[in-house]
Design a protein around this nucleic acid. Sequence first.
DNA 1: CAAGGCTTGGCAATGATTTTCATATCAAAT
DNA 2: ATTTGATATGAAAATCATTGCCAAGCCTTG
Lengths: 140, 140
Amino acid sequence: MPRTRRIPVPPWRDTPQRLQVLRALAARPGFSSAKLLHARMAADGCEVGLSTVYRALAALVEAGQADVVRDDNGERLFRHRGEEQHQHYLVCRHCGFALALDTDEIETWADRIARESGFADVRHTVELAGVCTECSAGPL
Amino acid sequence: MPRTRRIPVPPWRDTPQRLQVLRALAARPGFSSAKLLHARMAADGCEVGLSTVYRALAALVEAGQADVVRDDNGERLFRHRGEEQHQHYLVCRHCGFALALDTDEIETWADRIARESGFADVRHTVELAGVCTECSAGPL
DNA sequence: CAAGGCTTGGCAATGATTTTCATATCAAAT
DNA sequence: ATTTGATATGAAAATCATTGCCAAGCCTTG
Ligand SMILES: [Zn+2]
Ligand SMILES: [Zn+2]
Ligand SMILES: [Zn+2]
Ligand SMILES: [Zn+2]
């Protein structure tokens, strides 16, 4: 199974479309799907192909300017990487209620791993999922 | 977006197919895709529909007898939940080389979060990805 | 045996993401 | 300004894991 990914490597050309995608992404507070961004941009009168949105997002992720997670349906959600540090959550599998976590501990742990391993550009995904008290109380 | 999942809840009927799936899953050392399990079982002369494999796996996950993760392609990988504790890895984004991590720290952290939050049946996903020394050295 | 309810499995449908490919754009070189 | 080779775009088609559908089979109860 050869890794078949061909992503443009920085520096790329500065195209209006890519700037638009970056802008649209940065304009969103949390994570957004490519589809949503595409729709948003279209609504703003900015016609950009869905393929291009995907390509731009992939490039942004590759360049470390965006984070990406998967929701329960396997859909990828993107978020612009600003200065503000990221956050991890404990989400309820049933109602979707999300509890923000104090993640200093894992952050330092992840940093240490990154340092000791010699790996470059290490990113991490930490997701906790359970059933909230409310949902475990009332069945259905 | 209504969660549209209809998964048989334990206890279900004990069908040969479900036992086969469980067996096949337990027989594998690490994580396996539904497709692979299906192929494996077929190779062993056990004819089980792919849909059934998916249903059985979903039920096993629901019942806490299996863990599930997503690989980089969004494919779901399943693993039987035995007594042995699970493992986390730091994988290379380019060559796929995986480094097993000492995860005691996060395990206890996750356990504490689970306890303090009051959430039930808390599972966690911890994935680190970077570029290994080898790959960052020789650029393609 | 009959009725009703789970289960199964092949196949179609879904839907996100990728690939294709013809075209457009860019930037450097002539 | 024109040429040229590389790169970017986007519409449509392809990919592919996963799910929906549904007729047929199996099990249990009466
Ligand atoms: Zn809940
Ligand atoms: Zn973190
Ligand atoms: Zn590598
Ligand atoms: Zn763990």
